[in-house]
């Protein structure tokens, strides 16, 4: 699984990144996590607000910081939902 956090490195981008790390750790999904700061790549996803979250090439959230539980659901492993 390939997770990308899009954003030029503002405070919110960092908190999104931390939230994704939490979601990955808690759900135990094998995933590679990357920060994308390059503006052309960000625009390539058609995103106008940062931070944005991309999972396996699909834009999942734009301009907000979803909770770890929400992110885990996108990873296919909801936390606590067995």
């Amino acid at each position: 699984m390939n997770i990308e956090v899009l954003g030029p490195g503002c405070a919110k981008c960092k908190s999104l990144y931390a939230e994704v790390e939490k979601a990955v750790a808690q759900s135990g999904v094998a995933a590679t996590l990357a920060k994308v700061e390059d503006i052309e790549k960000i625009m390539g996803y058609g995103v106008m607000q940062t931070p944005a979250l991309v999972v396996d090439g699909k834009v999942r959230s734009v301009g907000r910081i979803p909770r770890a539980s929400e992110i885990a659901a996108w990873l296919g492993k909801p936390i606590g939902g067995n």
Partner: peptide, 15 residues
């Protein structure tokens, strides 16, 4: 519209 100066660049290009 929600706006933060940190997304001024993608917003400008997108517009």
């Amino acid at each position: 519209t929600p706006f933060c100066s940190c997304s001024a660049v993608p917003l400008f290009i997108g517009f």
